[in-house]
């Protein structure tokens, strides 16, 4: 790997980590969203520098769209979207720090102590062609499963996010009154 790529890798790596830290330290929800966007765009950049430009650009484009949607949800649901007052919405901070620190230490130890093998074969001349050929050939089943997972997600997310509509009353008579549900949250809300 040449010097320019190494420098790019180092810069993007540091920025990705800094963005990740900012996500959980900023008060403003807008800043949090853009810190996560920056961090995940740097992840896309790292993937590109490692020789996978198609996947890297796809990750960056997907993250931009995701974070724009997330910004809307953050402002809609969070109680302090502009971060005008400092606030903390944490629970069990010490335990979480302990667990995540232990996981980081274990992962770094595994990375440094494992005798990694040498690379098997040179990288292909066109990585996008390699991925497309695999998805349309030997990995077709994976592609189908991923496609069905996305379809199920679309249906499931729509059902969860919409009002119950015709399903909030018993039977098929749309003129019937809604059920009285003593528990709330179920049929009849």
């Amino acid at each position: 790997m040449d010097t320019v790529r190494l420098a790019l890798l180092a810069g993007l790596g540091v920025l990705a980590l800094a963005g990740g830290v900012l996500v959980f330290t900023c008060d403003s929800m807008a800043r949090v969203t853009f810190a996560l966007l920056g961090s995940l765009c740097c992840v896309g950049g790292v993937v590109t520098v490692l020789g996978l430009p198609y996947l890297g650009v796809a990750i960056v484009l997907m993250m931009v769209m995701e974070m724009v949607i997330m910004a809307v949800f953050m402002i809609a649901y969070m109680m302090n979207p502009a971060g005008l007052m400092p606030m903390s919405m944490l629970h069990n901070k010490r335990g979480s720090l302990l667990v995540s620190g232990a996981v980081f230490a274990a992962l770094v130890a595994a990375v440094l102590l494992t005798p990694w093998p040498a690379r098997t074969g040179p990288p292909p001349p066109d990585t996008t062609f390699q991925l497309g050929k695999a998805l349309m050939g030997t990995q077709m089943l994976t592609m189908l499963v991923l496609g069905f997972a996305l379809l199920a997600t679309m249906v499931g997310a729509t059902v969860l996010a919409t009002h119950r509509g015709r399903y909030d009353r018993f039977g098929d008579d749309l003129g019937r009154r809604q059920a009285r549900d003593p528990a709330g949250g179920g049929v009849g809300r």
Binding site: F24, M89, G95
Partner: peptide
């Protein structure tokens, strides 16, 4: 770097109260 990102995310997933 990957371990760092994973651990920062794990800290957030364990410690935050907000679902988002």
């Amino acid at each position: 770097l990957a371990a760092g990102l994973f651990s920062i995310g794990l800290f957030g997933a364990l410690s935050q109260q907000s679902i988002v």
